[in-house]
Design a protein around this nucleic acid. Structure first.
Lengths: 107, 107
DNA sequence: AAGACATATAGACATATGCTTATATAACTA
DNA sequence: TAGTTATATAAGCATATGTCTATATGTCTT
């Protein structure tokens, strides 16, 4: 992999908010509106962070009804799971979301 | 490790020039003046990149006479070697340096 | 078909980044 | 000690980044 492409991957991970997004997706797949609630930033801001993570092939998407669920894409970087292991555990944030009845449920 | 600290590490790796520096240090320890030759950018620019890598604890230094040699510091990030394995092999760049008689030799 | 909801894109703005030149600091050498 | 070489820091500038509000697009529901 060339230096430019590697840099793009690390640049994508080089932001506090995107680290949190990856740490959250480590727990479970989430959609933008859920990330907005948890992170406390605007919806467009979340969308743009997601776009960078997608461009870097760190995240992939799956549409389900009117929601788009995002999940980790480990296919491109063999070390990605070792890296994610060192990320903070944000399980609790997602629990709060469920407690507050803000978790998206689709069937 | 918290999101802020993780982001600093990845931000440090999120630049083409610093990727190259790390890839070069993977081959052998180098000083600033050697990196200037190989990378073809100004000495202050190299020094500033090195500073970021040092702040992120990705690189450590060792003074030898009037030179300061920089080397990889793998102590903080357990996955760092797996990551560095995917970096380009720049051994040839260092060979060129030696061929041109620009390698620093101290005894 | 019309309205509601989820997500994406555009534009604006403040801050961060990477580069340069000029200068300061540190260590060796004659 | 004076000069030379290596590295670091400062200041300035152009570009990139992250955020917001406003608006567009896409999907479902009634």
């Amino acid at each position: 992999m060339d230096a430019e492409q590697l840099a793009e991957c690390f640049k994508a991970m080089g932001d506090r908010t995107r680290i949190q997004i990856l740490a959250l997706l480590k727990v479970e797949d989430l959609c933008v509106c859920e990330l907005v609630e948890i992170l406390g930033i605007s919806q467009p801001s979340v969308s743009q962070h997601i776009r960078k993570l997608k461009n870097a092939k760190l995240v992939k998407e799956r549409r389900q009804g009117k929601w788009i669920f995002y999940s980790l894409d480990g296919s491109l970087y063999p070390y990605i799971h070792a890296v994610l292991d060192t990320f903070p555990d944000l399980r609790e944030k997602i629990e709060e979301l469920k407690t507050n009845g803000q978790k998206v449920v689709c069937d």
